[in-house]
């Protein structure tokens, strides 16, 4: 497939995911739409341009793994897994309803395609590291991708895992940081600053790339394995916009777990085309 065609397909999927996720949040009057929208282009690129998987065989040992460490952004994850064919669209309508498989944070025992249960922050990177070590140990060629928020990196467990990953030659291990610079209350730098984040990961023994996390072409390039592979884990710092795609949501911390009224929903649907 030509790269431009691939980029178009991913963009189309990402648009569908944004519309569908926002509808889920509107219907449930619950969710984390700001973080869904900053992450959606990254996740769409992984599922529709990069990763190897078969939704009919969710436990296939050689599948690439995606771990959603920012587990609260379920609108992004659940729409991706649905679009990837893991379950029918009807399931999305049950989002957060009693007994739904679509809990407010993902549960691997409820949904095919979910690799581990996340929600409390700082859990995804260590689990993903274990998956990558298992692959290295067994000589498997699967890749392991983990997406964390940026505020989430204030959790110390991430740095335990970052140090450990840097000390192993885990060339098939990729961390993407959704660097929207906002946590639930205010900016990351006002709260407990992360910059210079790239230097931190380099110092921990990682390769680092800093890209625009909404530039699908750049995401495809950064997430694709280079010829000959890598000898270090890769950290992609994806600069993103919280609430990306809806004018009144962009860069507003209040949309971390804000939910739309009917008027806001209609405006968003007009903009997301």
């Amino acid at each position: 497939m030509l790269k431009n065609d691939l980029v178009d397909i991913i963009r189309e999927k990402a648009l569908w995911m944004r519309r569908r996720a926002f509808t889920m949040v509107h219907d449930a009057q619950l969710g984390h739409p700001g973080g869904d929208f900053s992450a959606i282009d990254i996740i769409a690129t992984l599922y529709f341009g990069v990763m190897r998987y078969d939704p009919k065989k969710p436990d296939m040992p050689e599948r690439d793994r995606f771990i959603m460490s920012k587990g609260h952004a379920t609108g992004a994850l659940y729409t991706a897994l649905c679009a990837a064919g893991y379950y029918p669209e009807d399931w999305l309508k049950t989002y957060m309803q009693p007994q739904s498989k679509l809990n407010g944070h993902p549960n691997r025992n409820y949904l095919p395609g979910v690799e581990t249960n996340t929600g409390p922050l700082g859990h995804g990177l260590p689990v993903a590291l274990g998956i990558a070590i298992a692959g290295q140990m067994t000589g498997s060629d699967y890749r392991t991708f983990v997406l964390t928020g940026d505020g989430e990196l204030q959790e110390g467990s991430n740095w335990e895992a970052a140090m450990s990953a840097g000390n192993r030659k885990l060339g098939k291990f990729t961390l993407i940081v959704d660097r929207n610079r906002l946590q639930q209350g205010m900016g990351t730098e006002e709260t407990n600053g992360l910059d210079p984040l790239d230097d931190k990961f380099r110092a921990f023994g990682w390769d680092v790339e800093v890209i625009d996390g909404h530039d699908v072409g750049a995401l495809v390039n950064a997430l694709s394995e280079p010829p000959g592979g890598r000898s270090k884990p890769l950290c992609i710092i994806a600069n993103t916009i919280k609430g990306k795609g809806v004018s009144f949501m962009e860069n507003k911390a209040s949309w971390h777990h804000g939910v739309p009224n009917a008027e806001q929903y209609n405006i968003a649907m007009e903009e997301l085309v």
């Binding site: 040992p61 990177l125 260590p126 993903a128 067994t138 895992a161």
Partner: peptide, 19 residues
Amino acid sequence: GIAEQNMVGVGAGLANGGR
């Protein structure tokens, strides 16, 4: 190393990887 949170998370990941 001396990193129990990572240790337990890595355990879960190793199980995901079939160990």
